[in-house]
């Protein structure tokens, strides 16, 4: 039992389950799934579908954070990739053609990849602090997106593009398949190769890793490329959802929600050990929370207040000081000061 509780996914999972339970009790319709024309509908399905952009961005963010970095530019990259995709589709003679849409998607994702590589170059090669390096693109990116769309919100009518966010495959939302594919891809890349452990090594102790012969530059660069690429895909999904490229609203604040999702999933912002499953749960918590807030009749504009309290709650739960106080109140034993020795071993006894 205690062993379970000490698992680092314990709290995230419990929070998610609790959130779903509260919703299910408050409005039983929340857990209902209806079948219409062989396609599944319901609040839970909506959560899975709507979470796709955040899921992609948060997965990329996880890898970046594992290297001790942060990618603030993801929202701007989403805006750019959406702008590129929509501008290509808008400019083509046949916006409804599947080929056109595929070309648009591939080009926009490639652009996002290049933007990610640019971030990676600044961080890994020029060794600029990640916050600042990605701040450059965060500032400039939306400007670039506005230039691409000439300052307008480009709208298109293109069924194949609409399918990306709203279509169904095998009865499930197509966007969910994108999420699952991204999760599987990241999990394979990180955990079936040595990339995961080398990434963690770089994140925990970059200098020691370099001295040991780890190609830290390549690993850091790669992390930003992944983050940029995934943000690009997220940008396509976002613009498919609203069938428009909105350089200002696309991915607004998504970098903050993505970071929140990663932290909720138990990955520390200081880099190192990371959990892909944790991030997935973190994203679902945020999406469920958003759905809950909407249900409560709070305007979505006010929802940041809730997230403020979520952030505070999460950091307090993770804070060592709160842990100490709690231990003192529950009468935990004192022991010798041991800077290099972890405590907590005695909990099992």
């Amino acid at each position: 039992m205690t062993r379970w509780m000490r698992h680092r996914l314990f709290l995230p999972v419990v929070s998610l389950v609790a959130l779903i339970l509260v919703n299910a009790i408050a409005r039983p319709r929340f857990v209902q799934i209806t079948v219409r024309d062989g396609e599944l509908y319901g609040a839970l399905i909506d959560i899975l579908r709507n979470s796709a952009p955040l899921m992609l961005v948060a997965l990329g963010m996880t890898v970046v954070i594992a290297t001790r970095g942060i990618d603030l530019s993801v929202g701007a990259v989403m805006a750019v990739s959406g702008a590129v995709a929509l501008t290509i589709i808008d400019g083509s003679s046949d916006p409804g053609n599947v080929g056109t849409v595929l070309v648009a998607i591939v080009v926009s994702v490639l652009v996002a990849l290049v933007l990610g590589a640019w971030n990676g170059f600044l961080v890994a090669v020029l060794e600029i602090q990640p916050i600042i390096a990605t701040l450059v693109l965060m500032l400039a990116g939306r400007g670039v997106a506005l230039l691409i769309t000439d300052g307008f919100i480009t709208t298109v009518t293109s069924p194949p593009l609409k399918y990306v966010a709203s279509g169904h495959l095998l009865g499930l939302p197509f966007a969910l398949f994108i999420s699952v594919a991204a999760i599987a891809l990241i999990a394979l890349m990180e955990r079936r190769t040595a990339l995961g452990v080398l990434t963690e090594a770089v994140g925990i102790n970059p200098e020691a890793s370099r001295l040991t012969g780890v190609r830290s530059r390549g690993i850091i660069l790669g992390a930003y490329v992944v983050s940029g690429t995934f943000a690009g895909v997220a940008g396509v999904i976002y613009s498919s959802n609203i069938m428009a490229a909105d350089a200002n609203a696309a991915g607004e604040l998504i970098e903050l929600y993505a970071i929140l999702a990663v932290v909720l999933g138990g990955t520390s912002l200081t880099g190192g050990k990371f959990s892909i499953a944790g991030t997935v749960i973190g994203v679902l918590i945020i999406q469920t929370l958003q759905s809950t807030i909407l249900f409560l009749g709070v305007s979505s504009a006010e929802s940041p207040v809730f997230f403020a309290f979520v952030v505070i709650l999460v950091v307090l739960i993770q804070s060592p000081r709160v842990y100490q106080v709690a231990r003192r109140m529950t009468g935990g034993r004192r022991h010798h000061p041991a800077p290099e020795v972890t405590t907590g071993v005695e909990v099992t006894s």
Partner: peptide, 15 residues
Amino acid sequence: EGIIGDLSVAENITL
């Protein structure tokens, strides 16, 4: 510049 503190001993040795 040496130990990767949060990684296991095995991971450190084989790094």
